[in-house]
């Protein structure tokens, strides 16, 4: 069984919103119709997005960290939004585990959005149907795009490669290996939704240096006692012994 998913590295994300804009650009231009905006340049803009980058501050001043947090549908393995849908418009694909909405069947009752603890679903204000991340299902299986481009638009756009795309059920895929090796985790594990998307934690780069690494333990100068200091004008064997 395949379960396509994203892995988002919070250690690398710089919060540039390139994934947000490329997602909107690709998905608003597709055959499924626009992701409508209202008053986009006015005082109270609003619109439909599949992906948003949020920013959180962790800790108290002065020990704070700014965390940029891209949020989209997590394509849960146990999606709570699917069984509640009265029409079957909300479904999870058997072949690749992508959770999708059939816009032609959706009656816009909003019940699935109540059933999603992550707030990943947004009702389009103009089309009146529920919308959410499709993992760019129209890109990844496209015959017309070059093979290298058959990835979600957000993954293609990320300048720091904070977003990885692959099959989390294949233990040797890039996403599975990254989750395994870099402590990838799921959001809100308390609800048992088993999100397919994973996040990689912030990591502090630290080096462990022992004292004997700072000072050469086998320094011949230490072993044999101090040599007489040569005068500054005297020619030397190397730079270090001249001073």
């Amino acid at each position: 069984m395949t379960q396509l998913a994203l892995v988002i590295d919070l250690n690398v994300c710089v919060g540039c919103h390139a994934c947000v804009t490329s997602c909107k650009e690709w998905n608003t231009s597709g055959p499924a119709g626009p992701m409508s905006d209202s008053d986009p340049y006015g005082a109270d803009p609003s619109g439909t997005f599949f992906n948003r980058v949020q920013t959180f501050e962790v800790g108290t001043f002065p020990n704070t960290q700014t965390v940029h947090f891209p949020k989209s549908c997590l394509h849960c393995e146990e999606p709570p939004c699917v069984p509640v849908c009265p029409t079957g418009a909300s479904y999870k694909r058997k072949q690749d585990g992508i959770v999708l909405v059939d816009y032609d069947k959706c009656i816009g009752c909003e019940y699935c959005s109540w059933a999603c603890p992550y707030g990943a679903r947004e009702l389009d204000a103009k089309q009146k149907v529920m919308k959410k991340c499709t993992l760019c299902v129209d890109r990844i299986y496209s015959d017309t795009l070059p093979e290298a481009d058959r990835k979600p638009a957000c993954v293609m756009a990320c300048p720091t490669s904070a977003r990885l795309f692959g099959d989390v059920h294949d233990p040797e895929s890039i996403v599975s290996r990254t989750i395994r090796e870099n402590a990838g985790y799921a959001l809100m594990p308390e609800w048992g939704t088993q999100p397919a998307n994973h996040y990689l934690p912030r990591r502090k780069t630290t080096m462990k240096i022992h004292e004997d690494e700072l000072m050469r333990a086998d320094n011949p100068l230490k072993i044999d006692g101090k040599l007489p200091k040569p005068s500054k004008q005297q020619p030397t064997l190397d730079d270090s012994t001249s001073w």
């Binding site: 609003s46 619109g47 949020k71 959005s113 947004e122 959001l187 809100m188 996040y199």
Partner: peptide, 23 residues
Amino acid sequence: TAIGIKHPHIVQISQGSMGGSFN
């Protein structure tokens, strides 16, 4: 648990848009 960072003091600075949304 929402963002997966173990810390008692987390505050949101931005929800990712300048205006409102369905959410």
